Amino acid sequence: MNELLTAVSAAGPLAAGWSIHGLLLRRRLTAARHDPLSGLWTRDAFEARAVRTLARRPHVALLLLDLDGFKTVNDRHGHAAGDAAIRTTAAALTTALDGRGGAVVARLGGDEFAAVVPLSDPAGLPWLLAGLHDEITAPFRYGGHELRVGVSIGAALSSDLNAASRTPGDGVLGVLLRLADEAMYAVKRDGGGWHYPAAGVPVAGSTAGRRTGRPGTHTTLRKGAA
């Protein structure tokens, strides 16, 4: 019995050490999945969660967002002001999507963001986009100045997809990313706002997985209109 107690006592510090090691490892992995500036998910973590959400929900909106005027804020007020714009945008996205079960928000890099948002009623997507646009473009204070950035938002809805909109090798996430990317670029050329193209609108060509902005592939756009 004494030998057993001695063995347990000796193993205690070792077990505790491994427990602490495991906790630190989990914390490091969690930190690696979050962007340090915005606190949002990174691209890889976002894509993994987006795939799961798409598999479980019938109506999922994928949003791509690119800030307008971000370089001007950086140039006029310094990179710290640009960082504040990124943090403010992240907070606006998090607040606007709070309470929407299954929503996932990420910073893809630079001033680009993404989100997947399950919808109970797809008809509500334009109102969601308009609300996000208003939240993100609201002025914020930095260094005694009232600053503002614009945003271009492109959206695609999973339940709009059909066989004609897919290309070989693309999963649902890949198709939605291309559709949303094209919609975002189109509205950016129109001066910013948001755009959710009608179901069945073909995807413009892309080069190296990025938009090429070929004309004639979208419905007529009006700033801030579906």
Rank of each mutant, 00 (worst) to 15 (best):
Thr95Asp: 14
Leu40Arg: 04
Pro58Tyr: 13
Asn2Val: 15
Val60Asn: 14
Gly144Arg: 09
Val151Phe: 03
Asp111Gln: 15
Leu119Pro: 04
Val203Ser: 05
Pro122Leu: 07
Trp41Ala: 14
Leu173Tyr: 07
Asp44Phe: 01
Leu24Gly: 02
Gly101Ile: 07
Ser120Lys: 11
His34Leu: 13
Tyr196Leu: 15
Ala92Gly: 10
Val151Thr: 10
Ala11Tyr: 11
Trp127Phe: 09
Ser38His: 06
Thr207Trp: 03
Arg28His: 07
Asn74Lys: 00
Glu182Tyr: 05
His218Gly: 08
Ala204Gln: 14
Val116Pro: 01
His195Asn: 10
Ile136Thr: 05
His195Gly: 04
Gly102Val: 07
Gly131Asn: 05
Ala183Trp: 11
Gly144Ile: 02
Thr167Met: 11
His34Val: 06
Trp18Lys: 10
Arg33Gly: 07
Ala92Cys: 13
Pro126His: 09
Arg26Cys: 02
Tyr196Phe: 15
Val105Lys: 13
Val151Cys: 08
Leu63Pro: 06
Gly144Tyr: 10
Leu25Asn: 03
Thr95Val: 06
Gly110Gln: 15
Thr219Gln: 07
Thr88Leu: 00
Gly99Trp: 01
Ala106Arg: 11
Ala80Ile: 11
Thr207Phe: 00
Arg107His: 11
Ile86Pro: 07
Pro168Ser: 06
Val201Asp: 02
Arg222Tyr: 03
Ala225Tyr: 11
Ala130Phe: 00
Gly209Asn: 03
Leu129Ala: 07
Phe140Thr: 04
Ala31Phe: 00
Asp66Trp: 10
Asp66Arg: 08
Pro197Tyr: 03
Met1His: 14
